[in-house]
Amino acid sequence: MNEMSFSMPAFKSIAWVSNQARLSWAHRIKKLNHALADTAVKLVADGLLPSLQITVEGVLYFKLLQQARDLEVPLEGRLLGNKDVPGPVYYWVQLGDPKSGLCRACAESSLLHLESGDKECLWELNSEGNDTETIRETENPAISGHLWRKLVSHTGPIRPCSLHCSSLSRIDRKIMDGLRINGYSEEAEWREAIYSWPVEWNAVNGIAELRSPVVKLAYDTDAAQEKRVIRFNGTAYPEEGPFGREFPYKRRRFLRISDSKSFKAGLEHGN
């Protein structure tokens, strides 16, 4: 049996690859999240999108509530997780009329996901027939929002009907245009950059880890015994990203110690 019955309490640990990476990206991500919340409400208020789902962390939810009220946008919000357990708090928010979304199947699968109590759906979303693999590689950009959702507010269905659903790219284009129209051009560029980096998500025993070139984070996920890995290959690598031994970090052709002649001589002596 792969699934386990315990539920990991909500937590999130963040480790930046360097102070430089933290200084460059922590405040950008914060600004981007505010810009996304603001833009999401305006897109629906202006009728550019009939409805929109967005997942936000902590106090941003209350900012979203206020703005939706000000712009008279209907809003339904749900706390994701257990309010009695201390830890990071996320809210799923439906802006506008849920019945008028771009894809009915996405709306239905999102509701089913919310009602299931599952913490994530990344693994199932990324199955695409390769159900026996424990490492799944993808180049589908639609997965980026789901991979990054614990740091960057996710816009679009929390559980789309498929990563190939045409509504996803349409929503994404509206979001990017909306950011720019609303004066968030820099934030739009940061979002584009972040979503272009190689990223690995892996999970086992109720703990997920997201590794990116600037930051890694660990957080609670559904408890499964089998280790699951998803790799998004990405198309760019940030200047703050270091060399590392494993994916998703850029790798050296020659490892200074392990590949050196003198080290290998030692191994030979040891054998």
Partner: peptide
């Protein structure tokens, strides 16, 4: 990973 990560602010 071979990367000297900056210490996280809170333990888990």
């Amino acid at each position: 990973e071979g990367i000297e990560f900056v210490k996280a602010p809170l333990p888990s």
